[in-house]
Design a protein around this nucleic acid. Sequence first.
RNA 1: GGUGGCUUAGCUCAGAUGGUCGAGAGCGUUCGCCUCACACGCGAAAGGUCACUGGUUCGAAUCCAGUAGCCACCACCA
Length: 906
Amino acid sequence: MTDSYPKAYIPKSCEEKWYNVWQKNRIYEASAESPKPAYSILMPPPNVTGILHFGHVLNITIQDVFIRWKRMQGYETCWFPGTDHAGIATQARLEKELAKEGLTRYDLGREKFLERVWKWKEEYGGIILRQLRKLGISSDWSRTLFTMDESASNAVREVFVRLFDEGLIYRGKRIINWSPLSQTALSDEEVEFKEIKEHLFTLKYYFVDSNEYLSVATVRPETIFGDVAVAVNPKDERYKRYIGKFVRVPLVGRVVPVISDEYADPTFGTGCVKITPAHDPYDFEVGERHNLPIINSINPDGTLNEVAGQYNGVERFEARARIIEQLKNSHLIEKIESYTHNVGFSQRGGEPVEPYLSDQWFVRMKPLAEIALPPVLDGRIKFYPEHWGKTYQHWLENVRDWCISRQLWWGHRIPVYYTPDGRFTAARSEDEARKRLKLSSEVLLTQDPDVLDTWFSSWLWPLTTMKWLYDGKSETTQDLQKFLPTDLLVTAPDIIFFWVARMIMATMKFKNEIPFKNVYFTSTIRDGLGRKLSKSLGNSPDPLQIIEKYGADATRFTMIYLAPLGQDVRMDIDFKTQDIPSMEIGRNFANKIWNAARFLLLKRDMVFGNEYPIVYNNRVLREQEYSYSDKWIRSRLHSTIKKVNSSLENFKINDYSKILYDFIWRDFCDWYIEILKVELAEGFDPYFKQALMSFALQTFESVLKLIHPIMPFISEELWHLLTNKSEDESISLELNPEINEDFIDVELESNFEIYQLIVEEIRRLRNEIGIEPQKQLDVTLSIEKSNLLDLINNLKATIAFLAKCKKVDVVSKPGNFTKTISSVVREVQINIHLGSEINIEREQARLRKEIERLSKNILSIQSKLENSNFLSKAASEIIEREREKLNSMQDSLNKVQEIYHKLVEL
RNA sequence: GGUGGCUUAGCUCAGAUGGUCGAGAGCGUUCGCCUCACACGCGAAAGGUCACUGGUUCGAAUCCAGUAGCCACCACCA
């Protein structure tokens, strides 16, 4: 018998078992036709190249908690999973593999390369979705979408054409952020600025007609090959006279004009700035204003080009070093200062981006920003924590056009077709392009070679997951009708611009609907030193190993327990072993739950024998049979249900975990179960014992339901052990316990608190005096308050059990005792009869301390109650409470003083 | 430069709408326990001028302002 309930919870076997059962029974697949109200969540699609890290664990667990909780509240829940094709990351990954074979993508050619990527995707892509299953999540896997699936691609193409036709997508020659590593354009959002210590070089630009020169500062001397002018501020008296003259670009020898432009800041550097339109966005604007030529001196791979003469083909930073040498040798450098400034880096590749002039496709953002702002401002979409709304607003109000073309192969091909003479149109197919351009079938059309930014498909996620335009035509589907808008989006704040904002734009634009009602921004997880987790820092443990070691439930619970809304999380990480010791919180808690169940099961088997489960349902406590502790735990349970619901409703998921932790560990295990032991031992009537156990088991079943959203495996396992239900049934399809306000008894809870204080005080005194652990002493409690007296009398035996007393007497009047140490909690006097002489001095000292503490408190309350302002302005119930507090403390003080004086007399 | 966040026990953090805080938890530390569910446990203890200054209020860890330190995001001028 005992063998069926091992002493410690073993997560592994039950996790595998139950996930397989859930999958087999397809219990988490949603029906759009269900009459139940809908509750839906979009899973932020991880990259196909991704592997599980702790950011996912937190993010995914939060979503699962809400989905499971709502499912148990009777909603038709649908959690849409999927993966993102992650253009740059995936292509880079495959190119790396090719490189091992000594190949580049160009060796294979576009078609072969893409075949290869697809093959890789089928084989290894989406490993992360399998890893997510280890967490026990209840997403609807039948609805899994990949952003390059045909249905999604159809929608992407359609959206592109529509925006193009509306003039919201345009092609333009602009300075964009170029990644030399990936050799593609990037959006502004994909650039990260870092502070870099470099040098500021002041170069000499000699006038063509004199020995004088202009001093021009630059941090990028390698761009001098693209210089087409030197600008000075028109108001700058120092340089006014040079405007219109010509200088020679150092080394290059090109003769360029000195122009006047407001852009030159007289207070910065020398006040002269070289203008290189091809390599700086501001210079580009200056060039446009002054009609200057544009000279590109850098290749897409980051090397200098033929314009740079001898530096042709030299990598940009290498070139810089060599150019400086040459400038030095030619005495063309006036000075070199160290200089700290911010440089843009490619978020993915990590290399400095190159401002690069090229033809790219852009989305006009203003009109989209205008429709995306109102739903957040008017509260249709709520952010948690709220303050992200400000960040969102600021971004939208200052948004710049979105560069969506990428010079990659892996991604959605831009649906634009060009004629040999340079005309073009967006179209759903080549045929359509031909029609649109009114071309005969002989004219050769070429499709744009570029692909779209990955986020151009991600922003349609709320729509494509629900099969919008899956065939390029259908504007609505059952899923859209049932599940849009979704209820909750859980995501990291760093993709608020990339993704959250753009989803709002797209969904508002194409469906005139919000994509989600609530957005929960997760915490950033950091190590003990406050650093973000990253592989390169070696502070990013593999969640699968942690799950292996501590269990999925433990991992889930710990993450939620540690991660309050809106606050970063610090996890102690053992860098050597890649262990996370704080996972013990969850593991120990799971073990505690397991053992509470084990206790109940053992007692159940004892009390019912083989009558279980036949008579189980007939054994019910009659109302008068409920003991104070039964009523207390029932009251606590219902208070807990209430708190659980309100914390989840307010997205305080961290509170939810703490409320249950405290309730289960403290209330249920430390007190209720301990008391139950006594009640079972005392009861003679087997029917009564069975009823008592039924109540305990039912209470525990409620506990399991409450904990299920965060600890799905152990709760499922125990629920089955407890109820003997068939494997086809699942606790996750049960309804949450309902609150019965009638069961919440505030007065009982407060009296019970005094009972707990009494037990604790006796234990404390025993410890303090050093009574041997096994020694049982007689205790007399004197209590005047009648309802408390009744409660304590009722629970007398449990006090004896919990505080190791031989006998507990309860009297209504304080007695006169010798060889006794006494203490007071609230209005109760506790007397422990030692049966031997006591250390009077020590007792006096102890009591003096108590008198002091009480007197201090009383004084502060008294002064409050004597304050007429307080009496006239404070709420009456506050005053009443203070009065009660004062009375209670006075009473305590009187009693302590009485004891003290008696000691003195001895 | 702009915006937002944080600062409560040795450590990590709870402490909506100010009074129930007569400041809490977990870990760590100290002491005592293998008490018939659990040593992944039980019982107990020590440990805090709630960053600083001022204000609002009858009353502030909680609201406001300022200061300091830390963090994040945005903008980025040669």
